[in-house]
Computed example of a mutant assay.
Amino acid sequence: MRNPLPPLGWLRTFEAAARHLSFTGAARDLNMTQSAVSQQIKSLEGYLGQPLFHRRPRALELTEAGITYLPVVREAFRTLVRGTQAVTGQQENTVQVQCNITFSVNWLAPRLPSFRALHPDVHLNIFTELWEPREMAEGAAVEIRYSLRPADTVRTELLRSDHYYPVCAPDYPVTLETLQQQPLYDCSNLLSNWASWAED
C-alpha cells in the first residue's frame, strides 16, 4: 500500500520552487543542484499524477494544481514549526511577511541578501498570493499590498508610489461620452468601477 504522503523533502523543494518560481532559486535556497530540484519536482508530480508547474522559457508558472497545493504545503510546514517549538521550548526570531507574488519576486527578493546581511538573526517567512489577499494571514506581522488609502486600524508606511491608468485596444470604439458604459476589468480590485476613477 502506497504511503498517503509524499516524502517531506519533495514538499520542501516544491515550496521553495514555488516561492522563487525558479528551480535555480530553490536550489540556491536548499543547497542543492538545479537538476536535483528538477528531479524531486518531477517525482512529486508523478506521485500526485499531475503537473505543478508550467515550464516557461524564462520562468516557472504554477498550474491550477500547484496553486491549490501550495498553501496546504505551507500550512503543514508552519504546523510542524509550531509543534517543534512547543516541544523544544525554543522560539526563533521569526517575522512573517505577506505580499503578492509579483511584488515578492520583483521587489522583495532582490533586497533579501542586504536584509540578511544587516539582520542575520532574523528569519523571514514570506507568504505570497497571486492577487492581493482580502485579509492578513494568521500570524503575519507585516503585510505589503497595493492600496489607494492606508487603513486607520494598522500602522502603515509607504514603500513606493505607482501609477494606474485604464487602457483599451487602439481600435476599440469608445469616446469620453460613452466611457462609463464600457466594461472595466481590474484584477487588483483597487479601481473596479468608473466612479472610483472619477474620485481619484
Results as ranks from 00 to 15, higher is better:
1 M>K: 10
3 N>A: 09
5 L>N: 12
6 P>M: 08
11 L>H: 01
13 T>V: 14
14 F>K: 02
15 E>C: 14
15 E>G: 08
17 A>H: 04
27 A>Q: 14
28 R>S: 15
28 R>A: 15
33 T>P: 04
34 Q>I: 11
35 S>P: 05
36 A>H: 15
39 Q>T: 12
39 Q>S: 12
40 Q>M: 07
41 I>P: 00
46 G>M: 01
49 G>T: 10
50 Q>T: 12
50 Q>C: 11
50 Q>S: 11
57 P>F: 10
58 R>V: 07
65 A>Y: 01
68 T>P: 01
68 T>H: 14
68 T>Q: 14
70 L>D: 00
71 P>C: 00
72 V>G: 01
73 V>A: 06
73 V>Q: 01
78 R>C: 06
78 R>H: 07
79 T>D: 11
79 T>M: 09
79 T>W: 09
80 L>P: 01
81 V>R: 13
84 T>S: 10
88 T>D: 03
88 T>A: 05
88 T>G: 02
89 G>A: 11
92 E>Q: 09
93 N>E: 10
100 N>Q: 10
102 T>Q: 12
104 S>Q: 02
106 N>R: 14
107 W>L: 14
107 W>I: 12
114 S>H: 05
120 P>A: 05
123 H>N: 05
123 H>A: 04
126 I>C: 09
137 A>M: 13
143 E>H: 05
143 E>A: 09
149 R>D: 15
149 R>V: 15
152 D>W: 04
159 L>G: 02
161 S>N: 10
168 C>N: 10
171 D>L: 13
175 T>C: 02
187 C>E: 12
193 N>C: 15
194 W>N: 09
199 E>T: 14
200 D>L: 13
